[in-house]
């Protein structure tokens, strides 16, 4: 464990909690892609099945349980409790175009052709593109609430910190996981355009809105 990984995990946790609080406090999930949240719930479920088979640390286990719990709570709030506020018309990204190729890729390119390992690989690939329905929704409506942009920023920051963590681990632990690194870099690149808008607009006190 190094400081970049720890702050990355905490940034991830902050993102998840910001989103839950936003929905809970405003009693609304307007502007939030339920599809992205379902994809994240699938990501955590398929990745953390090793909760049942291997113990790494108390930190590792508790974070996994918290991530999974929060992911399902978010999906519940969007599709059950506050479903009347869910903007399904704008959440029109075709997720099958992500899940099917990602599933195929996980079967083809993995570290080990075993059930758990293929699910882990699937979750890594899926996480790298799971935010696309959310970004698609923002580009479609042309705007995002400021709190939603804080959520996205924390999520992107988590990915960027993980890259620094991998550089650290490569130099100091001679550790690298090519699948995680390639998928992680792809995922971080997806946030670059958003980072630019966040810094030039949101941090200067303006609402994030895109030119028509």
């Amino acid at each position: 464990m190094n400081i970049f990984r720890l702050t990355g995990d905490l940034s991830h946790l902050a993102a998840i909690i910001i989103l839950l609080l936003k929905i809970w406090k405003t009693r609304s999930c307007a502007g939030i892609s339920g599809k992205s949240q379902i994809l994240f719930a699938i990501v955590f479920t398929t990745r953390y099945l090793d909760l049942l088979s291997s113990f790494i640390s108390l930190y590792n286990t508790s974070m996994k349980v918290i991530y999974i719990g929060c992911a399902y709570a978010t999906v519940y709030l969007i599709y059950m409790k506050f479903r009347a506020t869910y903007d399904g018309n704008h959440d029109s990204f075709r997720v099958e175009f992500l899940v099917v190729p990602v599933g195929g890729l996980a079967v083809l390119i993995n570290h080990d052709f075993s059930f758990l390992e293929i699910l882990w690989t699937f979750s890594i690939y899926l996480e790298s593109v799971a935010i696309l329905p959310q970004l698609f929704m923002i580009s479609k409506t042309g705007e995002a609430e400021t709190i939603t942009t804080h959520y996205l920023f924390c999520l992107g920051l988590y990915r960027a910190l993980y890259i620094v963590n991998w550089i650290w681990r490569y130099y100091f632990e001679a550790f690298f996981d090519l699948i995680a690194i390639v998928a992680g870099v792809v995922q971080t690149i997806l946030y670059c355009d958003f980072f630019y808008l966040y810094v030039t607009k949101v941090l200067k006190g303006k609402k994030l809105s895109l030119p028509a």
């Binding site: 990984r5 995990d9 991830h12 990745r47 090793d50 291997s54 790494i56 590792n60 974070m63 996994k64 991530y67 570290h111 080990d112 882990w120 993980y162 963590n165 490569y170 001679a174 550790f175 690298f176 996981d177 090519l178 699948i179 995680a180």
Partner: peptide
């Protein structure tokens, strides 16, 4: 690096 090591990252 041993790529088959347990996945210790989150």
């Amino acid at each position: 690096a041993d790529e088959s090591a347990a996945h210790d990252e989150l």
